[in-house]
């Protein structure tokens, strides 16, 4: 079998797809997939890759692989995959869970994405999410696509309230002792995400040097601006120091070291 950027690469050989309306009750089966993780912890990777070079993107994947070495919980992100014009992989933050799973196969990789356009089948029945050749990420164990009924498109933040509720339910009902977020780069949606997790007092980790909204928030902290995130649950780590993030994850119960 020839492996391409569209080849499904996870333990089961298939990605489970779930579709939920953003106003409906939470999707039980999607949420239950998370309980198959050996360790009941969950981290969301939020952000983007704008202004990043190809080399920057590869270094991003390496940063997370080193930081999450030994992780066996749930690792979530957006659920999309971007392809280049020639069909090659254009790595994004949404590739982080699947990439980390390559060396930590027991973790559960989950994604969510809003329906921002009409879905279509193209070419050899490729499932395309929008007009930019965006695909469901084939490295996830399960993906939740969130829509506002069949006829209305959501914005790119359309899945955020749903995934926050899902993480809250894991924490409240399923015994996930620790849930948190790592922010890398990103724009306005990412800012809303780390503000939301910080407001919940969840561990909220900002990666310094990753760019844009994440770095802006770190600058606000360092310059004592009135709107700066603050509290013991806010943690800043430099993008060149994955071992510092790994230590934080161990110290805060996300990674268990025997």
């Amino acid at each position: 079998m020839t492996h391409t950027a569209q080849t499904v690469k996870n333990k089961s050989g298939k990605v489970q797809l779930f579709v939920a309306d953003h106003n409906s009750s939470l999707p039980a089966n999607y949420m239950l997939v998370a309980t198959k993780a050996p360790t009941k912890v969950a981290i969301r990777i939020a952000g983007g890759c704008k202004n990043m070079s190809d080399q920057d993107k590869l270094e991003m994947l390496d940063f997370f692989t080193q930081a999450f070495d030994g992780y066996t919980g749930v690792l979530c992100s957006g659920a999309t995959r971007q392809l280049t014009s020639t069909g090659e992989l254009d790595p994004m933050v949404t590739d982080v869970p699947g990439h980390v799973a390559l060396t930590n196969p027991d973790l559960i990789a989950l994604g969510t994405a809003p329906r921002t356009d009409t879905w279509s089948l193209q070419g050899e029945s490729a499932f395309v999410l929008d007009g930019y050749n965006t695909r469901p990420n084939p490295t996830m164990d399960a993906i939740l696509l969130v829509q506002d009924g069949p006829d209305t498109n959501l914005d790119w933040d359309g899945d955020v309230p749903t995934y926050l509720k899902i993480m809250e339910a894991w924490n409240k009902f399923a015994g996930f002792e620790h849930v948190g977020l790592v922010s890398w780069n990103g724009g306005a949606v990412t800012e809303a995400e780390f503000q939301a997790t910080a407001a919940r007092k969840w561990p909220t980790i900002l990666v310094e040097g990753s760019g844009r909204a994440t770095d802006d928030a770190i600058t606000a902290i360092h310059t004592n601006q009135p709107n700066a995130l603050q509290g013991n649950h806010i943690f800043v780590v430099n993008k060149n120091e994955p071992q510092i993030l790994r230590k934080y994850l161990i110290d805060n119960g996300f990674i268990t070291v025997n």
Binding site: S25, L26, P27, A28, M31, L32, T35, A169, W170, K172, F173, A174, G175
Partner: peptide
């Protein structure tokens, strides 16, 4: 006829 995620999740604490 309703589906409850929270009930199923609560059982998984076993």
């Amino acid at each position: 006829g309703e589906n409850s995620a929270n009930i199923a999740l609560s059982l998984t604490k076993a």
